[in-house]
Design a protein around this nucleic acid. Structure first.
Lengths: 349, 349
DNA sequence: CTGAAAGCGCTAACAG
DNA sequence: CTGTTAGCGCTTTCAG
């Protein structure tokens, strides 16, 4: 005697329910529902019966079962660096839009510049595979990434971060040249000669390249980088506060400071103002990336701006190229455009 | 277009690989790895061999397969209203933290106040079940939610939104009383008598209750709501700009305006200042919710503040109560605390 | 044109 | 204490 295992009376219809209602086999239902991939012709009659049954039951394919079978998930994962950094918001939107138009779901995760979070993200993607990954790693080591890519074989696009891995496509690279241009602009157009930079503590991206751009610009202009000009702090509002506090304790602070991101620049401005200084009267501030806060703050922040939506769109498109198999081979590098947007936080000397 | 489907010789180890290496059966591996749920004792020897094999292969359980079998996913989905609204950032962090501590993964999605996005989210969760859902719906209709809950049977917590469904736990309800208190404060403590409110276009949450709180406070103080005092606009920076522009076109604008969220308040302040007005000298502004921008703007925004992290933590905890089966029955309602934080955007009359 | 059947990787009875 | 087995819901051969 054969004992049948009875399924819970869940009211979520399965393909089998559809098949029964339409009076066909379950595999025929599958064929109809995946018409695009199925090279088999099916009679209009059965097709219609099946579609009716789908409609009637409100059937939705179970993606988990499908994924197990196909080893593909129709899902991409995005890890942003810090949800509070508006830099990532247009990127997230663009990714959701483009992915959605291709019927891919998007799993967003927030790294928050915390190593454990970033690691947890990798682990999640390892245990719960997706078809592609876009990420802005800030704390992960090369070994972490190496191990991840070796294990997962999932296409990865890194944005706004210096990831050096032979298989990872990278969007970024603006840091060095854009910082160079910004510093040079402060020197040549605005007449500053004593310029500071607040960068990132440690060797975390995108600290080093922005620092290099600064150093190169200063050197090319024959200016010396005094002790204390380079402040390495966190990539956040608070980091900017600390850096500015440090500048203001110096006997002779710089006349202009370039912040590696605009949140830092705003934190810095607030501290300077709290100490009774005028920005840009007493000290000029310049930021990196155009976020809404840059025009909320007073004075409005002069910045290096990138087209964030474009970066987001490009990230998904690049990713899809690999997911579709249109591109194979070593990681590519895409440099985004930038321009200086002058507002009111920098004065001429 | 032919979709290529070459399944790589994936080197991702399966449980079977572990079993082979350890010289045991696959189910024994499963037992060891799920020790907590397994009531069966296992010899220390085999256990060690298995753990060694796991280590050696770097084995990670495949959650997709596990989910298919167990009908549980170890994942919760969060749909926030608008990724650019800092209101949601602490909530997201809290959710990620609490969920992470219980080894649940979190899928964040961004509704962006767009109906299609919100619908897409529901659809995603239907096709790709999760164990629980936290959401801040802004455009979904009651029928959308009804249909979703009926189909999915997934516990849902709604935050900061007026969802009326017998099975949905709701955190919120601050809108009416907090707005009442804020308006009353403007009247009694600050002496304003001609007060406007910028709320939400249509009947979208949390427009109506905030409007009701306003109306009740005005009525209780015996003040009349003049035509044009109530501006219904989008829940965004731009909405605030439009509302303020509308006020300033009036022959006799209000002396104080309460904005239904702080982003709107900031947009409004910027427009007023652009038109040469002084805030709060010419017009006082008050916002709802403490977001970083509220202290970036000048004057710093006087607001009604809630503890956003606490709301986030509470949301997950409530959700887990249902996921764990500790709570069943009709949807509960949780009212969060609030307080007025006075800064510089409101003056006494 | 359609059905039967073999799994995807895992868990959970059921049998030793 | 451990192995065998039956699926979870779906796609994809392989046979008609």
């Amino acid at each position: 005697m054969v004992r049948r295992k009875t399924r819970q009376p869940s009211n979520i219809p399965t393909m089998h329910d559809v098949a029964k209602l339409a009076g066909v086999s379950q595999s025929t239902v599958s064929r109809v529902l995946n018409e695009t991939t199925s090279p088999v012709p099916i009679s209009d009659d059965t097709k219609q019966r099946i579609l009716d049954a789908v409609e009637q039951l409100g059937y939705q394919p179970n993606m988990i079962a499908r994924s197990l079978r196909t080893q593909r998930t129709q899902m991409i994962a995005v890890m942003i660096g810090d949800i509070s950094n508006a830099f990532y918001h247009p990127i997230v939107r663009a990714v959701q839009d483009v992915a959605g138009s291709r019927d891919y779901d998007v799993l967003i995760s927030n790294g928050d510049h915390v190593y454990e979070n970033e690691l947890r993200f990798l682990q999640m993607v390892l245990r719960r595979p997706v078809d592609g990954v876009i990420m802005a790693p800030h704390r992960l080591t090369s070994e972490d990434l190496e191990r991840f890519i070796k294990r997962s074989h999932i296409p990865v696009v890194a944005v706004g971060a210096q990831v050096e891995h032979p298989m990872v496509d990278v969007i970024g690279g603006t840091s060095e040249p854009a910082t160079y241009e910004a510093i040079s602009w402060l020197i040549k157009e605005k007449g500053h000669r004593r310029i500071g930079i607040m960068g990132v503590a440690g060797d975390m991206p995108p600290g080093p390249p922005r620092l290099r751009g600064y150093e190169r610009a200063m050197a090319d202009a024959g200016l010396t980088i005094e002790e204390g000009f380079v402040q390495k702090v966190e990539f956040t509002w608070e980091g900017g506060e600390h850096a500015m506090a440090a500048y203001l304790q110096q006997p002779n602070p710089p006349t202009a400071v370039f912040a590696s991101n605009s949140l830092m620049a705003i934190g810095a401005i607030k501290v300077a103002q709290k100490q009774g200084l005028d920005v840009p009267g007493d000290i000029s501030m310049m930021g990196f990336d155009d976020i809404p806060e840059a025009t909320i703050v007073n004075p409005a922040l002069t910045i290096v701006a990138r087209d964030l939506s474009a970066i987001g769109r490009q990230a998904v498109e690049i990713l899809f190229e690999r997911m579709d198999g249109d591109v194979t081979g070593p990681g590519r590098f895409f440099q985004s455009e930038w321009r200086i947007v002058e507002r009111n936080s920098v004065r001429s000397i």
